[in-house]
Amino acid sequence: MKILTAAALAALVTVGAGQVHAAEGEAMPKYDWSFSGVFGRFDRAAMQRGLQVYREVCSACHGLKYVAFRNLEVLGYSEDEIKEMATEYSIGDGPNDEGDMFERPGRPSDYFPSPFPNDKAAAAANNGAAPPDLSLMAKARPGGPDYIRNLLLGYEDPPAGFEALEGLNYNLYFPGHQIAMAAPLSDGAVEFADGTEASTEQMATDLANFLMWTAEPNLERRHSLGVSVVLFLLVFTGILYAAKRKVWSDLH
């Protein structure tokens, strides 16, 4: 009985805190992600496609500075494939023995280079709004991967009477509905290496899959370790309860 009360109170606190966070923003359609849930895992094929969308579309304006090429091994690429992918990028390095900075082909230990040298340059080239780095985007917005997917699919004609400011675009899910980024995806914008049809929805979903991984690369380890820890604790707590009963049984 007492345990039930305690559990109910704990649940109340947790639910209350949850509502605090869910309180704001446009009603956000939820997608059934492979990585959600206690046993959730990443979808490798979707992540590879998402990486392709990032490299061919997003990377023109958005950085991915916390992700190193070596990390891509988790997506299912071989060492050689990663080396080759890295060499396609030019990385600033130096100073060399003459004291000069220089450019060289990327190595697996390098991080994705950002498209602009700094935020000011990024803002200057983009109508005053610097495109944010995408590494943590899936954790840095309410809704996370759902928000990313919805935002990419949320470009619509504005409702009657809605006047978007000069240079801004209407988006159903962006807070305030006016976003500087023009609709980045259109059907067939990329040609997927695995032959999947590149519909806008497919690309948006795959990209969100990929960005969830860039934001939370240890998610799979966390889930599998968590299952073991909780199972252990269930058994261990049961033993502790039995021990407690045993110890207390000699009280008259």
Binding site: A10, G226, V227, V229, V230, L233, T237, A243, V247, W248
Partner: peptide, 22 residues
Amino acid sequence: AKDAFGVGVFLLFFAAVVFFAP
């Protein structure tokens, strides 16, 4: 003994959040 059991229950709640909703 009673506190140890309480610790087990506490760690269960704690682990659930740390591993599944950090």
